[in-house]
Amino acid sequence: MVLRSESAVAVPARPLSRARFRIKEGTAFGWMMAALPLLFLVAFVGYPFVYGIWLSLENRSVARPAVFVGLGNFIADARDPVFWQVVRNTFVYTIVATVLKAGGGLALALVMNQNFRGKNLVRAMVLLPFIVPTVLSTIAWMWILDPAFSVLNWFLVHLGERPPGPSWLGNPYLAMGSVIFVNTWRGLPFYAITLLAGLQTIPGDLYDAATIDGAGSWHRFRYVTLPLLQPVILIVTMFSVIFTFSDFQLVYVLTRGGPANATHLFATYSFDIAMSAGQLGRGASVALAMLPALALVIAALTLYMRRRRW
């Protein structure tokens, strides 16, 4: 494949400058490489993607023919108070969980980047929350967050709190806190392990040089570690934002959006409308309302990756 690409550009119609030649050759190589995966993505995501957008412009129920309504579904969303609550919830959920995962993940990566006995075991064990199937671990959390069985409630009640103690999923604020906590629990290990991989690629000489220059551990972290880790942190964060923003499984199993919509997210609300109510068009419009925010994140990521050379 590569040989062909080389020969294709090896016989140019007219002599080219070396720079020009390299660009053209690179182009051919680039497209040769990217063609297959792109074709795959277009074939499998292209149709569903267009279908989703088309659906959002229709009044379309399961088992019924569609009527084109333009932006009608989106206008209906804008008038729906629950929709705006869902918007707020999703932003709170995403922002808080991402901050916790990023901060905690970095801290854990730094801790694990030290030399200690059993570090490989620890590194693997820490990944467990990420490995176990989400639907099943969430079912475990249903017990852990049940006031009658929660360890925290057990201690609180034994310290004199009126039984059964705080209701982790029944109180709207605690419920949001709980789903964020579980999301953090699930997502933090991947952050940590990815950032650890990033930390490992930082050449040790840089730290030596900084130490010779008299930098303390905070300065070494601030001026050596952080800048070099920045690209990895950014990419992981961006993807974490995308996945958290469109999270479905966790909330669906744990609260299904309750109590009184306090934890409903775009994906769960859209799913309820599309599946339980059979309103595919409306459901699609709710899901697609995520698009502007996500597109912004993705555009920022693209720009950053294109501009930066390191």
Binding site: G30, F248, L294, I298
Partner: peptide, 22 residues
């Protein structure tokens, strides 16, 4: 190479339509 920015964006854009719809 020309078109690479577009490809990069298109690839990430596949996340724009969430799975519960796909």
């Amino acid at each position: 190479f020309p078109g690479s920015a577009l490809i990069a964006f298109a690839v990430a854009a596949t996340y724009l339509v969430p799975q519960p719809l796909l």
